[in-house]
Amino acid sequence: MDSWEWDETLFAGTAVHYGTGRMPYPQGVADAVRDALGLDGTGRLLDVGCGPGSLTVLLAPLFAEAVGVDADPGMIAEAKLKAPGIHWHCMRAEQLPAGLGTFRVASFAQSFHWMDQDLVAERVRGMLCPEGAWVHIGATTHRGADTGEPLPLPAPPWDAIDALVTRYLGPVRRAGQGRFPQFTKRFEEDVMPRAGYTGPERIVVREGRIAERGEDEIVAAVLSLSSSAPHHFGDRLPAFEADLRALLRDAAPDGRFAERVHDVEVVIWRP
């Protein structure tokens, strides 16, 4: 992927912040996937780049068995705590099929852009049964939509938060031990047909909900990002968190915020 290589520190230390800092996927995502694919509780799910299992756990009831794989050991550790009944594997997507068998659905949620996309698309296609499907979930879960609408509580001051991160880490976005790669994002429109898939079918799940979030949730959201993962700050992490909390208290002295939850896009490809 244009000189991009996986860095095992990419999400180091972020997993413990996901449960608090990331807004959950709405039940409507599972309902949309179920209805589009006619799922009936049989077959197997493979969630690739599963993180701490946020999507895996939501979709698992639609299948007889669910498997999650992620390259970050911290993510898999959190996933095992969340749902010990699901089969979790710490491995890179590029290592598939890894003897995991055949699946009805392979899902990717905010993860495919970190992978060797052509290789992963080809290998996963060979793991799908004839009636199977690849499901990509496109969402922003660490922050809400900037709609400019009146809200019942102050919106998190994301511009000021971004400026604070830049003050500590510099203007170039971090990624692992280096910088965020400036590769061309090929994504499904180019990769999937080349790998032999047909589609796509696109479904927008309109959440429409206003979420109330606390100070701790916003702090965790920032620290859940690869670009502001805790290890980037080194021994300056306590100072950064203190400055972040001061910024948030200035915006909302009681530490309570509100923001509009983003819509979620479900994209389905067939092998």
Score class of each variant (00 low, 15 high):
Ile161Asn: 02
Gly99Ser: 08
Ala133Leu: 07
Ala121Gln: 07
Pro271Asn: 09
Ala229Gly: 10
Leu46Ala: 11
Leu225Thr: 13
Gln95Glu: 15
Ala163Cys: 07
Ala133Ser: 11
Arg104Val: 08
Gly101Lys: 08
Ile268Tyr: 06
Pro152Tyr: 00
Ala77Asp: 13
Gly13Arg: 09
Ile137Val: 13
Thr102His: 14
Pro156Asp: 12
Arg123Cys: 00
Thr42Met: 03
Arg125Val: 03
Ala121Lys: 07
Ala252Gln: 00
His113Asp: 08
Met75Gln: 15
Val172Cys: 10
Leu153Gly: 03
Trp134Lys: 04
Gly138Cys: 04
Trp88Cys: 11
Glu217Asn: 03
Gly68Trp: 07
Ala251Asn: 02
Gly28Leu: 02
Gly21Met: 09
Arg173His: 11
Met23Ser: 03
Asp72Lys: 00
Gly214Met: 00
Val105Cys: 04
Arg174Gln: 12
Val264Asn: 06
Gly101His: 05
Ile203Leu: 13
Glu131Val: 09
Ile218Tyr: 04
Arg194Thr: 12
Glu207Asp: 15
Gly53Ala: 13
Pro26Val: 03
Glu65Thr: 14
Ile203Tyr: 10
Gly99Asp: 12
Asp7Pro: 01
Gly51Cys: 02
Arg179His: 11
Glu215Ala: 09
Arg209Val: 14
Pro154Val: 05
Ala163Ser: 15
Pro156Gln: 09
Met1Gln: 08
His262Arg: 06
Leu248Glu: 02
Ala221Lys: 00
Pro152His: 01
Thr56Arg: 08
Ala211Arg: 14
Gln95Val: 00
Asp70Glu: 02
